[in-house]
Design a protein around this nucleic acid. Structure first.
Lengths: 175, 175
DNA sequence: AGACTATGAATGAAGG
DNA sequence: CCTTCATTCATAGTCT
């Protein structure tokens, strides 16, 4: 809706070259950015927090245009596809019965909890993750002010006239 | 998940445009449904009560298969993502020019489906909400105790040596 | 040129 | 309410 799009840049990122990615419309990561992200992922980072996303994004912005959401999406996608790929393989290698593997994969619910799946490699670079601050549980504050329940409320909705439909009238004044 | 699956729908997009949505397994809202929901949201409805959800669901069922929980989830997600988006953008555009783009991420769907949504802002038909319940963004007061690690943390990143690039140093102590 | 693939982006559904 | 997972849409890049 009202997509401003902020202009369209038409340029492809030179693969590794200094040509800063000028590709808009959809984030096109540079090879450097991908490398950093991949390394971070391989180093164990799977779901960065908002702050981490922020920082990563800021650092990566040096190599080209990037937003926080790009980092966010990248990790989401990468993780999801890693898992998806793994699952795919596990189902696929039923072709050759190498070994009896009656794994109960159908209950795919509580097996994708923490990091332990894809970490066959060691941590190469000198990448120090966050010191694992776990005391962020201090945000359990809840203010109950959402009960904006008014007794005489009436939603009277009226559609446009571009389509035929029953007159919708969300009248909630009965309660 | 106990494989309830609650039935598989077979219906296409009720709006007469089944661009790609002829696949179900999960609720696939029609453009009309989305429009109504969006309008309601933009009108200030954030957390509809059970009754309201019921009403909305019933009314929207005209446009296609829908359940109450769909409405519930829709509002939950929409609200959460609106906030999340806002937070992310606001923080990360500090680096570049602060272009006002609050609705940047357009939900532009497939072309074949956009036929009647050609207008950018056709919203606000005749929609009577509660007696002028002015909701502001008065909930940014979330305490952010995210500044726990300052100088004790340092992303000391070290690249490989495959390509030449400026020495990246993900030091998170700049915040 | 079209199909194919990889992947960015979006969102429904839950979990907590 | 916040975070996460799964599925899907959309498209840049590539292959044949």
């Amino acid at each position: 809706m009202e997509d401003g799009m902020s202009g369209f840049c038409i340029k492809a990122r030179g693969g590794g070259n200094g040509s800063t990615g000028t590709k808009c419309g959809r984030w096109n990561p540079t090879t450097e950015q991908v490398k950093v992200l991949t390394d971070l992922f391989r180093s164990g980072l799977r779901t960065p927090s908002t702050d981490q996303i922020q920082k990563i994004s800021t650092q990566l912005s040096f190599y080209g245009k990037i937003e926080s959401k790009n980092v966010f999406y990248w990790f989401q996608n990468h993780k999801a596809r890693e898992r998806q790929k793994r699952r795919r393989v596990s189902i696929d290698d039923k072709d050759f019965i190498r070994q009896d593997q009656q794994e109960k994969v159908s209950s795919a619910k509580h097996f994708a909890e923490i990091h332990e799946v894809s970490e066959p490699e060691r941590v190469i670079e000198t990448l120090q993750l966050f010191p694992l601050n776990s005391f962020d549980e201090s945000e359990k504050l809840r203010l109950h002010a959402n009960e904006y329940f008014m007794d005489t409320t009436a939603y009277s909705y009226n559609f446009g006239t571009e389509m035929d439909h029953p007159p919708l009238d969300l009248r909630l004044s009965f309660l």
